[in-house]
Computed example of a mutant assay.
Amino acid sequence: MPNVIDYRDVTIHRNSLITLKHIDLKVGQGEFVYIIGKVGSGKSSLLKSFYADVPVASGSARVLDYDLSSIRSRDIPYLRRQIGIVFQDFRLLTDRSAEDNLRFVLRATGWTDRAEIDERISDVLKSVGMENKKYKKPHELSGGEQQRIVIARALLNKPPLILADEPTGNLDPSTGESIVSYLHTVAREGTTVIMATHNMSLVEQFPARTLICSQRTLR
């Protein structure tokens, strides 16, 4: 089976500056991979390069069989629909319920059948233990509950790849542990998960392949 991510001698530019260079990275289906490093070391830029938000300047870069060095603008939305993204700052729509946040995403990605939409929302909320909180708006949820809704949002379209950028940064230790544990469960079920973090205690508690961003490269 082909790799979900296949980077060979890749250089990444951000704001016309080299962020990372000489990146060689292969990630297979169902792998869980940590990306660690200091603030400003390029972790977020690397994750953003996977969904064509930060350009690949040189090298061979393939994600989900898309060639990022030559991807057309009109194909980028199709790539992104296959990637679930878990942000540290949640990015939930504050004026609507958890359920309606998820409904908005499904409609935006082409779902039209109301029964199918309701069934899918119910499935993902149940998977993250939030089926009883679906009517609550973000401000009525704790940080951990909001992050679970964000994970549910990332799972909606059954993506083969999930990117989590410091997903526990705004959470207390116990809640952070439960979030990382659940992401490992997602990987065991066959979805590739790449998580950027600087929390080494979580890496030690939930061990997996770990790569380090340092001195403008990945090792």
Score class of each variant (00 low, 15 high):
203 V>R: 03
42 G>F: 07
6 D>M: 09
64 L>N: 04
50 F>Y: 08
178 S>E: 14
162 I>N: 00
167 P>Q: 02
129 G>K: 01
173 P>E: 12
139 H>P: 09
135 Y>P: 00
180 V>Q: 05
172 D>I: 11
91 R>W: 11
25 L>Y: 03
211 L>E: 01
110 G>F: 13
8 R>A: 08
68 L>M: 11
91 R>P: 11
80 R>P: 14
8 R>V: 03
68 L>E: 07
6 D>V: 09
103 R>L: 15
147 Q>E: 02
218 L>C: 00
90 F>W: 12
218 L>A: 00
47 L>D: 04
102 L>F: 15
76 I>N: 02
111 W>G: 07
12 I>H: 03
2 P>N: 04
156 L>F: 05
16 S>R: 04
86 V>G: 11
152 A>F: 07
173 P>I: 10
202 L>A: 08
161 L>R: 01
214 S>I: 00
15 N>Q: 12
161 L>T: 01
143 G>H: 02
187 A>M: 11
130 M>A: 09
215 Q>I: 00
132 N>H: 04
185 T>E: 13
9 D>F: 06
1 M>L: 04
116 E>A: 15
219 R>E: 09
181 S>M: 13
176 G>Y: 03
183 L>W: 05
105 V>R: 12
155 L>R: 00
203 V>S: 06
157 N>C: 12
166 E>C: 10
148 R>D: 07
189 E>R: 12
96 R>V: 15
182 Y>V: 03
121 I>Y: 06
83 I>K: 07
28 G>Y: 03
75 D>G: 02
28 G>W: 06
106 L>P: 14
16 S>A: 12
209 R>G: 05
115 A>D: 08
48 K>A: 06
121 I>G: 06
215 Q>H: 08
186 V>H: 02
134 K>T: 01
156 L>N: 00
152 A>W: 09
2 P>T: 02
168 T>W: 08
48 K>H: 13
102 L>C: 14
117 I>K: 10
169 G>L: 09
118 D>E: 15
218 L>T: 00
2 P>M: 05
168 T>N: 07
159 P>I: 04
38 K>A: 15
199 N>I: 10
201 S>R: 15
14 R>E: 00
53 D>M: 15
154 A>K: 05
185 T>F: 02
144 G>A: 01
9 D>Y: 04
193 V>G: 15
98 A>L: 13
182 Y>I: 05
11 T>Y: 05
86 V>C: 14
131 E>Y: 03
